[in-house]
Computed example of a mutant assay.
Amino acid sequence: MTESGSPSERIAAELRRRIAAGELAPGARVPSTRRITQEWGVAMATATKVLNRLREEGLVRAVPGVGTVVAGKPAPAGDRSRPASPREARSGAEPSGARRARAGGEHELTRERIVATAVRVADEEGLAALSMRRVATDLGVATMSLYRHVSGKDELLRLMTDVAFGEEPLPESPAPDWREGLETVARLQWRIYRRHPWLASTMSFTRPVMAPDAAAHTERSIAVLAGRGLSWEEMAQASVALAAFVCGLAVHFEREAQAEQDSGLSAEEWMDRTNGEDHERLMADPERFPMFDALSRGPEIDLSLEGLFAFGMARMLDGVGQLIERRGAGAGDENG
């Protein structure tokens, strides 16, 4: 495949067209790397390459706190007084009256539409962009009209959580092998967090949200451990500890997406440009940092989120296995 026919070049060409046609005006936000991966189904590296290419051509620039925007002076305040949202950037700014006409008015407002809109805002722009007012604006209705369907943002987040977990149901029956069963649940949670990077930061394991589709994951994890000689407390703690590990690592999906949006740099680019000198100083002091020095001289190490997830999950399951072995599968039923 030639470079001109590569996915990154095709996407870059489409964004160039939008800029040339005025669909993306000067100062308007261009789709983020996260949005590009969702809209075109490409890898994050490809999306990063697209924005880097446009940046090198001088068509876009990174604005701290905003993201990557079209280069050049913004239109007059009366024409466009703020950078466009990703939604506007894809289709052009739309008058509020048109949004209301499209939304169908408040008489067609439903809880499902409110939640779907909130999930879309959080997916595209991050949780910081989500508010009752923002959801109402996207729906073309008055903010107070939302409260007839949702009591407030806390309930909205609970409903969003349930929708996210319900998008990909658990297998109908648990795996007969406990390790396979727990791994299935953990990998499913990982995929859900990756699809919705904002989700992990809303989860709490001390004040859990009672969302049925999320609670089903804990139910399944306990079920695959039942009858293995563990107490109810041990089964619950093993299930929740594994879920907390997955969630804790997945929090970095949102953090990295926001950092990339703010800086216009991928994690790899940021490390190259920002931490290069610091890294060199560490390597130059092998007496103080002998392990860093040894690591730098060895083979490449996978410290990606995917690599850490796979390693950490395997080690946690190893520990559960050792506990089951100590209890002994035939030691009697302690679960009753």
Rank of each mutant, 00 (worst) to 15 (best):
I324H: 09
S201C: 09
A244N: 08
H107G: 04
T218H: 12
T110Y: 12
E88T: 01
S91H: 12
L230P: 01
A129T: 09
Q322Y: 05
V251R: 15
E256D: 15
A214G: 08
L225Y: 04
A259E: 14
R207L: 15
G65I: 12
A118T: 01
L182Q: 00
I19S: 05
D318K: 07
G264I: 05
R191M: 07
T68K: 03
N52S: 14
V240M: 06
D302E: 03
L308C: 06
R187Q: 04
A98D: 10
E167D: 14
A186I: 01
M271G: 12
G276N: 09
W40N: 04
G140Q: 10
Y193K: 03
R158T: 10
S6R: 11
Q322G: 03
R228Q: 15
D123C: 01
M44T: 02
L146A: 00
R61F: 06
E155D: 13
P208D: 03
E3V: 11
S221D: 07
W178E: 00
E277S: 08
P7G: 04
I192G: 02
A77T: 10
G152P: 01
D302A: 04
V70S: 06
W40L: 02
P74V: 06
S4D: 03
T184R: 03
A215H: 05
Q237C: 04
L159W: 03
R220D: 05
E325C: 08
Y147V: 01
R255S: 13
A103F: 06
H217K: 00
A128Q: 08
M291Q: 03
A89H: 05
H279M: 11
G229E: 14
L308M: 11
L59Y: 07
M210V: 10
V224P: 01
M132V: 11
R111C: 10
S96A: 15
G319H: 07
P169R: 02
R102L: 13
L54A: 02
R315G: 10
G65N: 14
L225C: 07
P290H: 07
D177H: 08
H107F: 08
G307Q: 08
M210I: 03
W270D: 09
D285E: 07
A25V: 03
T161G: 04
L317C: 05
R194Q: 08
K153W: 01
P197G: 14
T110Q: 07
L182F: 03
L305G: 07
E260F: 10
S32M: 04
R207F: 13
L146K: 00
M210W: 06
M283L: 15
W198C: 04
L182S: 00
E57W: 03
E269C: 05
V209N: 01
A45L: 05
S145W: 02
F309W: 13
L51F: 12
R82S: 12
A226E: 10
P169K: 02
R228V: 10
S204N: 14
R120T: 14
G332C: 12
G336R: 15
R90E: 15
G58D: 04
H196Y: 14
G332F: 13
T206K: 08
